[in-house]
Amino acid sequence: MTASSLRWAKALPLSAKVGLAFVLFWLAIAIFGPMLAPYPVGAFVAYDVFDGMSAQHWLGSDYLGRDVLSRLLSGARYTVGLAAAAAMLASATGTALALTAAVGGAGVDEPLSRFMDTLISIPSKIFSLVLVAAFGSSLALLLLIAAVTYVPGNYRIARALAVNLAQMDYVQVARARGEGRFHLALREILPNMIHPLLADFGLRFVFIVLLLSGLSFLGLGVQPPDADLGSLVRENISGLGEGALAILMPAIAIATLTVGVNLLIDGLKGKRP
């Protein structure tokens, strides 16, 4: 298993290897980061605010004299965890609805597709702002809002794939054999659309990271005392004038995460003929 995945990684183009390295790095940080943190997340440990790099504080201190590295390690867990959960929820919901539409006939497909087309015509940031205004922004709500915002995009792609596959001979044969709709959707159609769906999952993850950190940056996302990477940028915005590490580092962290996923997906796409 490990040998074959090593061979798989070696065959990737260089840019995809860099992307894979970033992705694995941030996954590891999200899982183990808080254990590695040198100081408690909320503790005031430095005498100076917006300090530069030092041996005690590798990434300096923030606007209240807290350790930036420790806060970054904990913020990454919120960003990666929330976005991964929301992307999974969005993909699972979108794909389930798409399969329902593909095997359910025009009576199901048409109203559902019309509804999704409507939702997709609302720009995602605008949609999520309206949802946040109506419902608020606890962690659970943010997860739901991000998922709901990106269901229509996944539905559109999954439906196009599923409708094409439903016309294939082997699906028609299974239908003629008398298999039920469940069997058709889950055993015949779904296994053949997994690969493009995985690439789409990666893209949804990137969109959701950007959306959630954007919301947090506006003060409408993760609320204190919790902080994701976007909140870290927001709370240190007063350090912008002096070019503080406390504001640069979380912003760079988000960029390496999203760019990494994008490079990886792009490299995988190039591999298939």
Binding site: V206, V233, L240, G243, A251, V259, L263, D266
Partner: peptide
């Protein structure tokens, strides 16, 4: 250019803005 534009698509707007402030108004 492919890698540059691919990366730019994924960079959050506030990083672009922060870097622009750092370069053009701070430095």
């Amino acid at each position: 250019l492919n890698i540059a534009t691919l990366s730019m698509v994924a960079v959050p707007e506030f990083l672009v803005a922060t870097l622009a402030v750092l370069i053009f108004s701070v430095k």
